[in-house]
């Protein structure tokens, strides 16, 4: 056994079960266990939701709580959460002040959060703004068209926007603030060669997406 898991298919959800059990004073599952939310939502506050693939913990569930996120949606390992999960989080945490989505710049995340936002807006009851985080200059030289990815700078965006929302900022103000923090944040990183599971270049390609 190389990993503490029962099966690869249930790893992400089994981990979430333990996370919620360990931090039950701060978080709880949303309906259908589709996402993790604050135990206590603040009335009249803009809801802030993020999410992404499992495998990047403690981001994002670890950032759910007072002064940061209201909900986080987790997919399978390195796989984006589904629009259905994200929509459920939007619908159930909206306190009437609107919802700010903080999304890392990956194809799957951007697409699924966008679909969920469209579902929520078309219902006529939700106001949504989205911040796309693209702090990573390590891949700027890439030939890929999607541009810089969102990585560790996402924490900074979520902390600062979360504090402003907690202090009563409006959805429009949070959109401006979040974009400004993205513009003021850059990240670069390196992994170590020869690490288990990344012994050659080709296998390394699974390292970060989602």
């Amino acid at each position: 056994m190389k990993k503490f898991m029962n099966s690869a298919g249930t790893l992400a959800q089994d981990s979430l079960e333990g996370f919620v059990a360990a931090h039950g004073d701060i978080v709880m599952f949303g309906a259908g266990r589709k996402y993790v939310r604050r135990r206590m939502l603040s009335p009249g506050k803009v809801a802030i939701i993020s999410g992404g693939g499992a495998g990047h913990e403690p981001m994002h569930t670890g950032f759910v709580g007072h002064g940061m996120l209201d909900a986080a949606c987790t997919g399978y390992v390195f796989t984006s959460p589904t629009p259905d999960q994200i929509y459920a989080a939007i619908h159930e945490t909206d306190n009437g002040a609107g919802t700010l989505l903080i999304v890392k710049n990956y194809d799957g995340d951007v697409m699924n959060f966008e679909m969920a936002a469209e579902m929520a807006i078309s219902g006529g009851t939700h106001r949504i703004e989205t911040i796309i985080v693209n702090d990573d200059i390590a891949v700027e030289r890439s030939a890929r068209g999607t541009g810089r990815r969102g990585v560790a700078g996402t924490l900074v965006v979520e902390k600062i926007a979360g504090a402003a929302a907690q202090a009563g900022a409006t959805l429009d103000q949070l959109k401006v603030l979040g974009d400004a923090v993205v513009g003021a944040t850059l990240n670069d990183g390196r992994g170590l060669e020869g690490h288990d599971g990344a012994a050659d270049d080709a296998r390394d390609v699974s390292a970060w997406p989602g």
């Binding site: 990047h56 981001m59 670890g62 700078g153 924490l155 944040t185 992994g191 170590l192 690490h195």
Partner: peptide
């Protein structure tokens, strides 16, 4: 250790203008 890629050995450095 806040934003990870499973058990990848490595670091990232983030700078935000304040």
């Amino acid at each position: 250790t806040y934003v990870t890629s499973l058990d990848m050995a490595g670091i990232s450095i983030t700078v935000t203008q304040l």
